[in-house]
Simulated scan of single mutants.
Amino acid sequence: MKNIIIIAISILFASCAGSIATTEKEYHINKTVALKSEWKSNPKEWRLENDTLTGSGGPMHWAVIESKKKLPKNYEIDFKVNITRESLFEVMLNIDKENYIRTYLYNIDQNIVIGKGVYKKGSDEYEKRGGPTLFKKPMKLENNQWYAVKIRVANNQLFFSVNNETFLECSIEKSKLSQQGKLGFLTNGEAKITDLKIQKLKD
């Protein structure tokens, strides 16, 4: 029965015109989803257990997981994250080849940040990952605390909030950021993600 459910979910998402979510169907990550069929990652770095996605990297080698399908043009992402080790957790938005939008929580600077990102797969060289900060807002961030993250992209505007109390917003077009692409997550330590929901918004 479990195998039948997994196959059915895979067929459902395969029919969604290459998009990770549609207006008819939200995407939720849970134990019934075959992680390999929907995401590209190193199984030693990312694992799904009891509806919680855990990434394990290090300061010299960031752990990255990337969706196989594109995000819709307009979308909303909600989830909870807990940085249990080290300092950086990043949502990689609109991944297009090596470019993406950085939306992240950074314990060392005590900020949430929007930036322009680059990630060259297979390389741990400093200048071939990360990128410049464009906007930031101070926020007290601690390890072993759960944070509720909401990201909304609509009509080329990016809205990023944490715990519904600290907000950042920018124009994707004016900031010359990647306008469409895939979704990813990145950590330089250990981060846990739960209650992930991706929804397509009406164009």
Rank of each mutant, 00 (worst) to 15 (best):
S15F: 15
E142N: 10
F160I: 00
I6V: 14
K128R: 11
E98I: 08
V113Q: 08
N144K: 12
K136S: 07
R85Q: 12
G58Y: 06
L186C: 07
D203Y: 11
E190N: 10
G122N: 04
N42K: 13
I108C: 04
K73N: 09
N155H: 11
D51F: 07
E90V: 03
W46G: 12
F160V: 00
D109G: 14
G130H: 09
A8W: 05
Y147H: 09
M139N: 02
G184E: 08
K44T: 11
A8V: 04
Q180C: 10
A34Y: 09
R102A: 05
N188I: 01
D96H: 15
M1L: 07
V33N: 15
A148E: 08
S10D: 15
N156Y: 09
T32V: 13
E38D: 11
E125A: 11
L134E: 01
I112E: 05
D109S: 15
I5N: 12
N50K: 15
F89N: 04
K137G: 00
I108S: 13
E76A: 14
P132Q: 07
I65Y: 03
K31I: 06
G130Q: 04
F159R: 15
P132E: 08
V81W: 01
I108L: 13
K97L: 00
A8N: 15
I114Q: 01
P43W: 05
V81Y: 01
I193R: 03
N82R: 15
M92D: 02
I151M: 05
L35W: 03
N30Q: 10
L105N: 06
F167A: 02
G115A: 01
S67R: 11
R129T: 00
S123P: 05
S56H: 09
K136Q: 06
M139V: 09
K182Q: 11
D51V: 06
L134N: 02
I95W: 02
P72N: 11
I65S: 13
R129G: 00
G115M: 00
S161D: 13
T187E: 07
T133Q: 04
L141D: 02
K69F: 03
